[in-house]
Nucleic acid binder design. Structure first.
Lengths: 219, 219
DNA sequence: CCTCTTTTGTTGTAAAAACAACCGATTTGT
DNA sequence: ACAAATCGGTTGTTTTTACAACAAAAGAGG
């Protein structure tokens, strides 16, 4: 667990809390570290979760496979990001998505109750973390709405432009890389891979974008 | 403002706080009441907001009109629900959606900073509200993911079934009403109205659903 | 009660996406 | 280094949607 404290320090959740303070908070927040092999499920649809999770190593996808095997990728989780925050309320229902490891990964689970109620211990930074959590959830919320705005686009072309523009803006550069391969991007935008591939090439031939592998540039 | 305290009492945000306590918190939270006529914009895309809003009268839509007039309805806000929670973090960007009044409406804006930092005043229920806010955002988050799961469906038919099933489950009944007319539902699911209307009638003719106006039943 | 407006359903056509099948290039594992 | 698997691009066909135009029904207002 200790080796991941520097990672935690750089997360939005523990922003403003130094390493020794994080270390002392770990027991207070009932932190539990778990490892997952590539392809393993971290959480499964239908399960009940009561804890907040932070990815400290690897890469995850939040996704959903339907009866016929069609996959929807709701979002991706990179190192330092949290997940499971949509299920911290006592009245929360069961999970509606799977969370799966794309690479060998490590996740730390925290007891949210401890995070939310001020503890009597020495955790002076309790309230800071609680506030960070609030802001982190606010941002997450905004990201979801932004993803919704891509999904609201009617055509594959528009979805691509919407997504690529947003990524370009987010990464503050006209050239950027995306965390998906073609199939994953198609699953993320909920379109057919071949049709999307076709559309990407059209956009390239029209001189609007350039790309190679998962590196893109808006022109 | 006073007349809306009973409304506030029933909101998730002020759950567990009684009316007199809410009244004493209003000044502490810098509450400001504003009225909007039907059709008026409560918030506009590109604006910067720093406050958390609660609808205490009327009905709102969170939406987005593109250059060609195509409308996307991201969500609807009923009395007692909050909005603007995605912009409470200091590093939040500007609004990416419009919020518009569908009926004459009343909105109370709160200063989030006051809500998050414990005040030195008599507000014993400060922390309760802060915790409520966290849970409310968690739920909101889950609703957004659920809407994403409708949007991920490829066909109009699947989107309809996904949405109607979720509403049925949410309202705990096989017959329920929805807060949209046909055009609004189409904008909400991002499909063509006439095609959707057609699909609805097919579903009805196949005996899967029944409906009249905005009352639906799953069979 | 009648008119005007809004809402909903219907239909035909054009456009777009899904699907399937295939190939070449790249990557991975041994 | 080689075989197998994965990945990305291409094309033709089928299915679905978007679009447009219109008619019927419902609702609002004088």
């Amino acid at each position: 667990m200790k080796k991941y404290i520097p990672i935690l320090k750089r997360t939005q959740l523990f922003s403003g809390v130094n390493e020794s303070e994080i270390e002392s908070m770990l027991s207070c927040l009932d932190a539990r570290l778990k490892y997952y092999k590539k392809g393993e499920y971290v959480l499964r649809e239908g399960e009940r979760v009561g804890s907040l999770a932070v990815l400290v190593e690897g890469k995850l996808h939040i996704q959903n496979d339907d009866y016929w095997g069609n996959r929807s990728i709701i979002g991706d989780i990179a190192v330092g990001e949290m997940f499971g925050e949509a299920y911290i309320a006592p009245q929360s229902d069961t999970l509606i998505n799977d969370v799966v490891a794309l690479e060998d990964s490590a996740v730390i689970f925290f007891n949210v109750t401890c995070m939310v109620t001020t503890c009597s211990n020495t955790c002076r930074f309790h309230s800071a973390v609680a506030q960070n959590l609030l802001f982190a959830m606010s941002e997450k919320n905004r990201k979801l709405v932004q993803k919704l705005s891509h999904m609201h686009k009617r055509t594959t072309r528009e979805k691509l432009i919407s997504y690529l523009s947003a990524e370009s803006k987010r990464q503050n550069s006209s050239s950027f890389s995306i965390p998906f391969n073609r199939q994953q991007l198609a699953d993320f935008l909920s379109v057919d891979r071949s049709a999307m591939s076709n559309e990407l090439c059209k956009l390239r031939d029209e001189g609007l974008i350039a790309f190679s592998k998962n590196n893109f540039e808006l022109l």
